[in-house]
Computed example of a mutant assay.
Amino acid sequence: MNRKAASGLVLALVVVVGMAFRVSWNALRDVARAIGADEQASLLYPFVVDGLMALALIATLVLTGRDKTVALWILGGYTVASLLLNYVHGLVPALHAPEVGTLVRLADWDPAHYALVLIATSLPVGAIFFGSDLVAKVLHHRPAPVSEPAYERRADSSAHLPHTPVPAAHVGAVGSPSGTELPAVPTVSALVGEGADGVGGEDPHGPHTLRTPEPGAQEEDTRQAQFEEAELERTRQDARRTYAESAQAGRPLSARALGEAYGMSESWARKQILAVRDTSDSDSHHPHLVAVGGES
Score class of each variant (00 low, 15 high):
G198K: 12
P213W: 06
T102P: 00
V185F: 13
V23T: 15
D238M: 14
A247I: 03
L232H: 09
Y114S: 07
A155H: 06
R223I: 03
E260F: 06
S254M: 07
A155T: 05
Y78A: 00
G259N: 02
G179Y: 11
R154I: 04
R22I: 10
M53H: 08
D156R: 07
S147V: 01
D203S: 09
V276C: 04
G126K: 08
F21M: 04
M264N: 13
I128W: 06
P98R: 09
V15S: 15
G18L: 10
P93V: 04
R66G: 00
A217T: 04
S282V: 02
D203N: 08
V49S: 08
V92S: 01
A261Y: 01
E229H: 13
V199P: 03
S82G: 13
V138P: 00
Q224K: 08
I35Q: 05
A169F: 11
F47N: 08
F47Y: 09
S265L: 07
L289W: 14
Q248N: 14
A94W: 09
S267Q: 13
G198W: 08
I35F: 05
G101F: 03
G198F: 08
P177L: 12
L9D: 15
V100L: 11
E266K: 03
V166F: 06
L83W: 10
D221F: 12
G18F: 11
R241C: 10
L210G: 12
E39W: 09
G250Y: 04
P186Q: 14
G101I: 02
P149T: 05
P252L: 04
R66W: 02
R240M: 13
Q248C: 13
L210K: 12
